[in-house]
Design a protein around this nucleic acid. Structure first.
Lengths: 156, 156
DNA sequence: CAAAAAATCATGCGAAAGGGTGACGACAGC
DNA sequence: GCTGTCGTCACCCTTTCGCATGATTTTTTG
């Protein structure tokens, strides 16, 4: 959280510096102030969106898991229902929510890079989660991990 | 290494701020551009955070919907039995029996080498079959091919 | 708050996977 | 005969995966 504030300050400083720089180097056209304002607005809006996503990401995942779990506890309903991940087995295996999340994306056929993009993390992080999940599942390949995950009721 | 970058950014920002301050502290009106920019920045950062929250919230709902829809996909797969591969779809896609056989082994989590050993062919042959099957399924990865294969009723 | 757990990121390396191309033999159908 | 499909195999090259290791940050928990 502290790092966000730091980044915020740095970005602000650099932005103002950039503004000064452009102000001295370029020909100042008529509505330059508005242009700069728009620039700042766009950049900070994007930053705010990113920050908002980052802050709320974890809580969201938890909430979603809870919701899904509440929906379907009755067991032998294989075909219908919004799929209840076997949390008991998940916990005995020590698989975290994040790992399961990435496992689900793997099962959808996404590459590590695509997963990283979708979750706003680096590819290396995805690889780490993969490795841990594979280890806990006793899988050596992602296809095998998916197969095991479905066998164990962790994936739909 | 990351700390260096941070320190660099902070120092740069502070330096610029100091320069601005010493240069312009007499004339407050001159600060109008910066003040305006900072105001807009703060406002839009807040707006972005709010927007990020909102996006996330809606995405949560969307995700839930998607989950429900996903369950409906494996429709025409009657409960038990030795699984009837959808030969019609297989033929329309031009997938040969051999390719489907290898696809099934991929879905079991085997590597190309293991498949080659099990089928008494070379690994290169397995790769060729893989490539052709992936092409016909429009998949770029084996996990994606498995996903598509199950969607299309080609795999159990 | 301090400890533990989880998430994040990086780096390097070897193995696996994937794309492209070319080739050869078997076999069916015209 | 000739043609087309299928299965087989090889080579090269690039990308992706998986593994090990270490570090930092964030979150949870006692």
């Amino acid at each position: 959280m502290k790092r966000h504030v730091l980044i915020f300050g740095v970005v602000g400083g650099l932005l103002i510096a950039a503004l000064q720089y452009t102000e001295y180097r370029f020909i100042i056209i008529e509505h330059s102030v508005e242009l700069y304002g728009a620039l700042v607005a766009i950049l900070f809006a994007a930053f705010g969106i990113w920050l908002g996503l980052r802050i709320t990401r974890s809580r969201e995942t938890v909430r979603e898991t809870v919701v899904v779990r509440e929906v379907l506890v009755p067991a032998d309903a294989p075909a219908v229902g919004p799929f209840a991940p076997n949390t008991a087995r998940q916990q005995t295996l020590g698989i975290t929510a994040r790992e399961l999340e990435i496992l689900a994306l793997i099962a959808r056929g996404l590459s590590n890079r695509e997963i990283a993009t979708q979750l706003f993390v680096s590819e290396n992080t995805v690889k780490t989660h993969c490795a841990r999940a594979f280890d806990k599942l006793g899988a050596a390949r992602r296809t095998q991990a998916v197969q095991r995950g479905k066998e164990l009721g962790l994936l739909p």
